[in-house]
Design a protein around this nucleic acid. Structure first.
Lengths: 187, 187
DNA sequence: AACTGTGGCTAATGACATTAGCTTTTGAGC
DNA sequence: GCTCAAAAGCTAATGTCATTAGCCACAGTT
């Protein structure tokens, strides 16, 4: 073996810190290398290329997020679980907006798997509503769309009005919970 | 005057067609210039730089979208208007997924103004629910978040399961409409 | 027919990502 | 302690971009 200075994980950490501090546009291999105290090409010993770094960063973020929402949901059920899930999701976005903006939804297996972990937690939280499998999938997608849409727009500063975002989010939670409670007509 | 060959609008059109056909990653000035039958630096006679081109493209897309949802909402009200609004929004995304992915939410005045047009249509559609101004703002944000989140995820192919997206979207519409119908308790 | 400004062009620069090929370090086995 | 292979680092080189500078041609006006 050789010096164990850097590693794929360390590179990802450095890159995430860079994005946190300087925004998603600042993510270049040169900047990451500089922060890591290493020459740019050296990064290729740990990461295949920039696209893979992005994917690894997304996986890391999704896993962090999964841990959070998993903990938030623990021991709660139905409406209460959904509320905790949505609240903790947004807390993450507020804490790391740039990081969230850097999320990539590539069809890469690695990223897809990390995304699946998130979806699984949502599915579990929805079981309490007594949904059939197919129905639960649809509900999860809606939940995901609502949270992700809000998160993206907030992270990109697309809400300009002075009204409090917290209140808007309360309404969104209310919409989701109410929608889950009053099912569509069975066909 | 000189030859009136290209124009800012024409460049934007070419760029949009490029994105439609080859995806958002294919958007480079070189590719746009080549399609326009012109050398790369010539584009700068019509567009300040790549960032401005992106902004102009976003404005164009938002305006197209505004026209569509405006027409869809015309003459309808309340639940019916919301359903038409959400349906036509998604039709646009299905028709031009790459274009939608290329949307940028910069705080640039130009883009913000185009976004405001979209928001205004949503606000108008929500008036039928008899909401106070502040309440309408919150509701619009939720509507926007839900539609945008779904659109982004679909455009990025983030929904992998075989379940029909149309059915999921019906549920999302249902959630929004139900949520609007059953207001939060006033504090 | 000369003039002016517009749109286009070539050449140059600087930031990147990525590759090739060389050097250093280090840990494993002796 | 010594050898050595591989890991990890480095410099140099390449190709693609965006962007800028400076020049040329042409249209429409005078």
């Amino acid at each position: 073996m050789a010096r164990a200075a850097l590693s794929a994980g360390a590179v990802v950490d450095v890159a995430l810190r860079l994005v946190d501090e300087e925004g998603p546009a600042a993510l270049t291999l040169a900047a990451v290398a500089s922060r890591a105290g290493v020459a740019t090409p050296s990064l290729y010993k740990h990461v295949r290329n920039l696209a893979e770094l992005r994917a690894l960063m997304s996986v890391q973020v999704m896993d962090d997020l999964a841990e959070r929402i998993g903990a938030a949901v623990l021991g709660r059920s139905a409406d209460d679980a959904i509320r905790a899930l949505m609240t903790s999701w947004r807390e993450y976005v507020v804490e790391y907006p740039h990081r969230y903006s850097a999320l990539v939804q590539a069809p890469e297996p690695m990223v897809a798997r990390a995304g699946q972990r998130l979806v699984d937690i949502m599915l579990a939280a929805l079981r309490a509503y007594g949904m059939e499998d197919t129905e639960a999938i649809h509900a999860t997608r809606c939940l995901r769309a609502a949270m992700h849409g809000f998160a993206v727009l907030q992270a990109e500063n697309a809400f300009q009005r002075p009204e409090k975002l917290d209140e808007t989010y309360d309404l969104l939670i209310h919409m989701v919970v109410t929608g889950l409670r009053t099912p569509l007509r069975r066909t």
